[in-house]
Design a binder for these strands. Sequence first.
DNA 1: GACGGATCATTGAAAATGTCAACGATTGGT
DNA 2: ACCAATCGTTGACATTTTCAATGATCCGTC
Lengths: 151, 151
Amino acid sequence: MSVQDEAVVPRLAEAAIADDVGLLLAKLHAAGSVLNNKALAEFGLRERSYSVLRLACSGLEPTQRELAEFLSLDPSQIVALVDELEGRGLVYREQGRTDRRQKIVLATPEGERLHAGASAAIAACEHEQLAALTDAEAATLRKLLRKALWA
Amino acid sequence: MSVQDEAVVPRLAEAAIADDVGLLLAKLHAAGSVLNNKALAEFGLRERSYSVLRLACSGLEPTQRELAEFLSLDPSQIVALVDELEGRGLVYREQGRTDRRQKIVLATPEGERLHAGASAAIAACEHEQLAALTDAEAATLRKLLRKALWA
DNA sequence: GACGGATCATTGAAAATGTCAACGATTGGT
DNA sequence: ACCAATCGTTGACATTTTCAATGATCCGTC
């Protein structure tokens, strides 16, 4: 679990494709997902349900459609995720403030509690994943990713 | 298709989760995949098969196991991808140099030709995806991603 | 030099995910 | 009051992921 362990550079990292942003994103994302899901298992969550719970805790009162777009998921997948969280009493649906078609996803007190623990675990994962970067580099990475996404 | 179009910042980008590296990677990766697959369609390729073809063209003589690990895929998925490319005459298998169990994936001249066109299209996609970043920022992003992955 | 455990590509099945079209309820514009 | 569009939801379908099992081959040990 030390930094050395993950510092094994595969032979193929020499290939031109190792500079393709698409591949780099895919690899880092895949590695991170494994870490995250492993860490979230103790909370009975997966990356997806954690994201929904986290947004439900944000105070932004997200509608299911907003969740779908923001998480790059199909609206029908949000239904399943919210159903599951709601069944566990972590989240509940409320009618949209101005549009009765939409449903806002909010966290229950128990959802807030679980999120507090889970988000700490995720933060630790993130730190481990970016262990090879200095704090400044990690901040730069975040900034550039945000800029690429949202200009 | 202008930069403005993709510069729409969703309301939820204010949430704390919008600073989670995991989510940023997932979103940028998802958006890039859509672009890449769209661009590769004219070559009859998808992101996965393109990656295999590209590595077959690298001169590194990758074995299927190396491809699996490098692309974060199950070995059985590599079999299917190579089967397809081989069936189209873009790639062929050769016995491992020192180990007869392993199979090296190499590109045919036709595979090389297709790869030349496809890689140009992918480069254009990448440029479009990172349009909001300066060239220096894009280079920094690549560097940080590589460092995080391979220290 | 033969044995036994490990590794490789391959197959196939099962589970999880992604994609898409259709529906009722509701909205907003004409 | 109507019509087109949007929201959440359901269900069907395709793709992808995951995993166990297999034959061939390698490597270390006796």
